[in-house]
């Protein structure tokens, strides 16, 4: 479903590679944690995954489509199937919580009545039903993060990327949201979560993509199946 083949990436054409020789495959419906020390390139990899940047070298295939050969229109369609929770939320400050969450549906041209019902339902679910008309500046960090998560999942994306999604949340809400990601994963959404939190990685026991000095190491999935079985029983 998602395949990186000999992918290199650098921001400056004359600079050094931030990510180099990346080779990995994420299967449809898989769930991965993305870990690594600060500056290892987690955010750059997330950027490549949501097509915010294109690789300097190598081939990325997303949903069976080679992005190097995709037209502009096809790239838009691919992006509409990817939900992203940014580390800094990136909520639009002039829009209410409702309008922020409704953005992906508006962009994909869904009818107003569908937007109204889906967004209200999801905001109720993340516990922000009574804050839907408030702008981000009036919401707390945790509430803003929940709006960002709601915005990322509202259009039921095939791939969900989250950069430190539980960073500003207390443990209870953090685990509840991780539970939501689990639920989405069971419905077939492929999930990649960048996190520093070893408790979450340990608790949920999904395979890890470990970034070290710009290259990725994929854990042995069999090891995680064992861990997960141990966790369940």
């Amino acid at each position: 479903m998602i395949r990186f083949k000999n992918v290199h990436f650098r921001y400056n054409p004359h600079g050094r590679d931030i990510l180099h020789d990346m080779n990995f495959t994420l299967k449809r419906g898989s769930y991965h944690f993305l870990t690594g020390p600060s500056g290892a390139g987690k955010t750059s990899l997330i950027n490549l995954l949501f097509l915010g940047n294109i690789p300097t070298q190598g081939k990325i295939t997303i949903f069976g489509q080679n992005i190097n050969k995709a037209s502009r229109k096809e790239m838009c369609t691919l992006r509409q199937n990817i939900g992203v929770v940014f580390q800094d939320f990136r909520l639009l400050p002039h829009l209410s919580a409702f309008d922020n969450v409704a953005l992906p549906l508006r962009i994909s041209g869904r009818p107003n009545n569908e937007i109204q019902s889906h967004v209200s339902e999801l905001l109720d679910w993340v516990g922000l039903g009574d804050q839907k008309n408030n702008r981000p500046e009036t919401l707390s960090g945790g509430q803003q993060q929940r709006v960002a998560i709601a915005r990322a999942i509202i259009a039921q994306p095939k791939l969900l990327l989250a950069d430190e999604p539980t960073g500003n949340l207390d443990d209870q809400i953090g685990f509840r949201l991780m539970g939501l990601f689990e639920q989405l994963n069971r419905m077939g959404t492929t999930i990649v979560i960048a996190t520093h939190n070893p408790n979450i990685i340990e608790q949920f026991g999904h395979p890890c993509l470990r970034l070290v000095d710009g290259s990725v190491k994929q854990d042995n999935p069999a090891l995680h199946i064992k861990k997960k079985i141990r966790h369940v029983f």
Binding site: T77, Q80, I107
Partner: peptide, 9 residues
């Protein structure tokens, strides 16, 4: 940029 990344044409 955000709209573009969300798939806005």
């Amino acid at each position: 940029e955000l709209l573009h990344h969300m798939g806005a044409r």
